[in-house]
Nucleic acid binder design. Sequence first.
DNA 1: CGACGGCTTGAGAATACTCAATATCGGTGG
DNA 2: CCACCGATATTGAGTATTCTCAAGCCGTCG
Lengths: 214, 214
Amino acid sequence: MYRRGALIRPERDRGSEAYVVNSGWLFSFILLGDGSRQILRLHLPGDMVGLSCSAFSDAAETLMAVTDVRVIPIDRNALIEMFMEYPRLGAALFLLTQAEQVSLGDRLASIGRTTAKSRVAALLIDTVVRLRQTNSEIGSSFVFPLTQEEIGDATGLTAVHVNRMFRVLVREGLIARNSNQLSILDEPRLTAVASYVNRYVEFDGSILPPSSRG
Amino acid sequence: MYRRGALIRPERDRGSEAYVVNSGWLFSFILLGDGSRQILRLHLPGDMVGLSCSAFSDAAETLMAVTDVRVIPIDRNALIEMFMEYPRLGAALFLLTQAEQVSLGDRLASIGRTTAKSRVAALLIDTVVRLRQTNSEIGSSFVFPLTQEEIGDATGLTAVHVNRMFRVLVREGLIARNSNQLSILDEPRLTAVASYVNRYVEFDGSILPPSSRG
DNA sequence: CGACGGCTTGAGAATACTCAATATCGGTGG
DNA sequence: CCACCGATATTGAGTATTCTCAAGCCGTCG
């Protein structure tokens, strides 16, 4: 178990592993030369994280706990063995990874080509959509534990400007806030503001051959 | 063979395929609701492109030829069969994909957390480093066929501002230009300006088990 | 030659940042 | 229980970066 704020895997750690998130939230980030931080992705329960380390001798990114978090380590050699022994599983993992890559691309577009307000909206919508994937009870209200500083590092903004965009979203009746509790009041409009495309509805595993065990 | 500017795979094309770039350059991009474009990645000879379509029934991104380009199609069903029949190849492809994901993450950090000048510098450095991977004869001078509009779409800037940043880089003695020909005059300094980390030097395929054919 | 796409430059506007001060909130020690 | 502390959130004022609009230039192609 890692406490909020703990580094789960320091950048440049040799022989590092991948994990499955058991409970809690964490994020991956990289540091730039000037000390600024870019959060690459928020990882929610059920996600696999840190796979990219499998391609490099050193971990390319750091993992930090957003809330108290439990993770299950996956040995990287075991991962490769899995590819050899259970190729269908390997193929499935490959597809999953491709889906993550598409998601990263969407984020790139959000940060590169949309306004601050839109980026914040996109982060919120994407988070709630992903939460619903593993917890169908999530409605339009959920706990969002990131600080505004962290939201800024995820969206390429400063904490101050994140704060202003939040209040704009509130003023326009798109969301409501109460400490960590966040409510989406007008999801269609928030989705539009965010230029958000929900690709999870189109994930296509049908390409995989049927399991040999039927 | 596709001509410069041709769409190699229109977004939303069903049953689309992946490709290997044989000759020429192309890029992948996505369009946002307001018509703006984000270029996700430049694809050079030897690259695999369009793999992400394997996870979705519809292609998530569009491919466009930057120069005249030759590509070799890869059927997506054949790709999955490869995973089943040649798991070691599948694992290798998986690692390659992870490496691309790290690269995407670096670009996210560049666009989210660095200045316009830095982003343009990063695009140039990254391109020359990748060119050298498959063509060791590339020195510090090479043909860079993107228009400033396209560079803007790749870096999250406007064409006008890309132009200004180019002239700053020239004025500071970091690069020189002559129509499409681009020369890097001071690579260490340009690398520093770009906050660029060359991760290609650390790619680690050693994790793969030795080939069964020795 | 004329049209067109791409490049260059200027001026003004908009967006987002920095710095700084104040407020709030949860937790801690007395 | 209360005062205090650090971390986070909020707000204002001024600044910087980047964008938009607009005009002119340059080279290529038909």
